[in-house]
């Protein structure tokens, strides 16, 4: 029983990280209607910038502030040079643009800051602790708490602030949003900046565990099944999807892995996602067209 609980909880905690990565995608999908292939590179770039500034001797808070400032500038730059000229083009064109963008950002990150692996110490001890008689990683707990807090803050913002409601309005009907004075370009800038900051947090947590290196940008591959399960348009869905994937892959690795030689985690989420596609094509929380005419 303890093994089951430990596996489940460990999986759920890891799943919150997947949720965090998926939220970055959801934000941009809602505002720009595109699957942002560059989200992984943005995450890598953000984490790499942060760790490089730390290595240059900046204190933690200053490094964080400077990194966030750079992400905001980057978002404005992307909006001006990529999104604005491509506005009203097909989603496919936009998707290709984010594909190109991912190479540019990756190139910039490694060109400016090098390709070596950086260790990142967030000062969270990674010693397992007992809760009752269940063994849990302290680091996972802190990471999960951070992810959940960030997700809750974002959900609150999107439901209650002017910018949040504007973003949801744009997601529903861009033309109508323009007609009542919503500044689409500013919404895009804000959303890409927020997605960058969410990427930074995810990158820091993930990077602290496995080092900050090129492979961080591959977390995109983890987020995709989460998005398929949770839906591309719902922050709640991204959270639930991440938890489901995290728990399921950990349980599968422990209980099914031994029979088929292990190594289940890379593909099991996709297996799960495809199963979900059969049952609920719009995702668990995906918004279907709400129309009653």
């Amino acid at each position: 029983m303890n093994l089951f609980l430990e596996t489940l909880i460990g999986g759920l905690l890891a799943g919150t990280m997947y949720s965090l990565v998926a939220i970055g995608f959801v934000l941009i999908y809602k505002a720009s209607g595109v699957f942002n292939f560059a989200q992984g590179s943005m995450l890598l770039f953000a984490a790499l910038t942060f760790v490089t500034l730390l290595e240059k001797g900046l204190p933690f808070a200053a490094a964080l502030a400077v990194t966030i400032a750079i992400l905001i500038l980057g978002a404005i730059l992307i909006e001006r040079t990529v999104l604005r000229p491509l506005a009203n083009r097909s989603p496919m064109t936009l998707f290709m643009a984010t594909l190109g963008l991912s190479y540019v950002i990756e190139g910039a990150a490694q060109g400016l800051m090098g390709a070596q692996v950086h260790a990142l110490d967030l000062g969270i001890e990674d010693v397992p602790i007992f809760i009752g008689d269940v063994l849990i990683s302290q680091f996972d707990l802190v990471a999960a708490a951070t992810a959940v807090t960030l997700a809750l803050v974002l959900a609150l913002l999107f439901n209650n602030t002017r910018i949040g409601i504007s973003l949801r309005a744009v997601a529903d009907d861009t033309r109508a949003a323009l007609s009542i004075g919503i500044n689409l370009n500013r919404i895009w800038q804000i959303v890409w900046a927020v997605a960058g900051i969410v990427g930074l947090v995810a990158g820091m947590l993930w990077g602290a565990r496995q080092g900050i290196q090129f492979s961080l940008s591959l977390v995109v591959l983890k987020a995709l099944p989460v998005l398929i399960i949770g839906g591309f348009t719902s922050i709640g869905g991204a959270i639930a999807g991440g938890l489901i994937v995290g728990a399921a892959e950990n349980l599968a690795e422990t209980y099914v892995g031994p029979y088929i030689g292990g190594g289940i985690t890379p593909w099991f989420p996709y297996f799960l996602a495809i199963a979900f596609l059969y049952i609920r094509p719009a995702g668990l929380f995906g918004e279907r067209a709400l129309e009653r005419v």
Binding site: R162, I165, S166, R168, A169, A171, D172, D173, R175, A176, A177, S179, I180, G181, I182, E287, A289, L290, E291
Partner: peptide
Amino acid sequence: HVLEGRHVFGHLTVEENLRTGTFL
């Protein structure tokens, strides 16, 4: 401009739709 074909924000509540009109 009130567009042809009633472009309301379908997933927003009626009141949220109205609120968006005041944002500017």
